[in-house]
Amino acid sequence: MNATYVRYELLRLSRNKRFFFFSLGFPLVLYLVIAGSNKKQVLDMGSFSLKFPLYYMVGMASYGAMIAAIAGGARIAAERSTGWNRQLRLTPLRPSVYFGTKVFTSYLMALISIALLYVAGISYGVSIELARWFEMTGLILIGLAPFVALGVLAGHLLTVDSMGPALGGGSAFFGFLGGQWFPLPNHGFLHVLGECIPSYWLTQASHVGIGGNAWGITGWIVIGVWTAAASVLAAWAYRRDTQRV
């Protein structure tokens, strides 16, 4: 690892105010407004009941983290558009360090997003057992891996112009099919499809915070396969991406 390079990447990240606001502020503001106006509501889940701020916090944590992770790609697309990527390739910087730094900054953004939502949730009276906090957060971070890779892939494949629609469409697709927006039916086609989508498992990970179970073997396989496939594609996109944009 090159400490100076990583330090400047973080510095650049912290100076990009708009990026910060939209990838971190959006889920947070949404949570504060919606959960704030339903603070006392209790959801009847059949066998048990849930306070709305808790239910909405875990959902937003997984969705916000996913958006923050994918959004890393927008930064890459912007860097490519200035020819920076070509310049960087003429340096001895190893691709592994380049990717490592991108993954690190994407994860950092996701982690900040999660932390902000946790703090907001606690301020609304949410409480979860400490062990569950950790289990939920750990699983969410693992479940983010395919989205970080998809972000890098999109960043090297798309231009700045197409990045907006792609991010919007992508996060809507994953948000809907993964049951992040509203719960999917427990059976049938949508459920089967959802189980093949990594955002579904991200939702399941967040449900650990509300008494759900950790992933079974299917979850690990889906996350593993998506991560591997997206990483291979991202590496391919990076290799071919040496020409003028």
């Binding site: 510095l11 558009s81 200035t82 920076w84 310049q87």
Partner: peptide, 17 residues
């Protein structure tokens, strides 16, 4: 090995620094 330096035709000035 760090033996090559280049100034390409376009861009290559990174923002936010």
């Amino acid at each position: 090995t760090g033996a090559v330096g280049a100034m390409l035709q376009s861009g290559a000035v990174l923002r936010d620094l």
